[in-house]
């Protein structure tokens, strides 16, 4: 009975680890989706309505979900806290804090946006945002494929790993 309980515990922990890994992959896809949607909206607002960025960031922080929402909220907060540091610095610091799931290439694309936002005319900013949004859309598709592929692998591995540990311990 005790062995059965122990085996059950091992299997649960192993499956939980697998689920965490799969969850991480899915959260990354969702973050990329939300960031993509945010950048597309930002581009439209900047290009057509010339809205000031602090207003746009505040709105994005309210409207977007998950890591992306927290990222935009943080940019807005840091910019209000230290306007002299500039938007690019707030953007970079918020990325370090809230976009930890992203890969180097995704972070690089976003950093380029941070370097441009608020410092150039609407057309240049719009072009940079559109380029980054296209790049993020492609990276999101890749991440989606990866999440499906690796998701199955992680689930299988966690189940198999748990079973193997149980067999070794028994």
């Amino acid at each position: 009975m005790l062995k059965l309980l122990g085996a059950l515990c091992v299997m649960v922990v192993s499956l939980w680890c697998g689920a965490q890994a799969v969850g991480g992959l899915r959260r990354r896809v969702r973050a990329l989706e939300e960031l993509h949607a945010g950048l597309v909206w930002l581009e439209e607002e900047l290009t057509f309505r010339l809205t000031p960025l602090p207003q746009l960031l505040e709105r994005l922080g309210q409207d977007r979900r998950g890591e992306a929402g927290r990222f935009f909220q943080e940019v807005d907060r840091l910019l209000r806290l230290d306007p002299e540091g500039g938007l690019h610095q707030s953007w970079r610091r918020a990325m370090v804090r809230h976009l930890t799931l992203l890969k180097a290439e995704e972070r690089q694309a976003l950093l380029e946006v941070g370097q441009t936002l608020g410092r150039y005319d609407a057309r240049t900013q719009g072009q940079t945002l559109a380029r980054c949004a296209r790049r993020l859309a492609a990276l999101r598709d890749e991440a989606q494929g990866e999440a499906q592929r690796l998701g199955k692998v992680y689930t299988a591995l966690s189940a198999a790993g748990g079973a193997m540990v149980i067999l070794v311990l028994i």
């Binding site: 900047l46 010339l50 809205t51 000031p52 960025l53 602090p54 910019l79 306007p83 002299e84 500039g86 938007l87 936002l117 608020g118 410092r119 150039y120 005319d121 609407a122 900013q125």
Partner: peptide, 16 residues
């Protein structure tokens, strides 16, 4: 640059 950034509230596009 900082003065211009502050004067435009980090939104140079609004004052082009």
């Amino acid at each position: 640059e900082t003065v211009l950034e502050l004067a435009s509230a980090s939104s140079v596009h609004t004052v082009m």
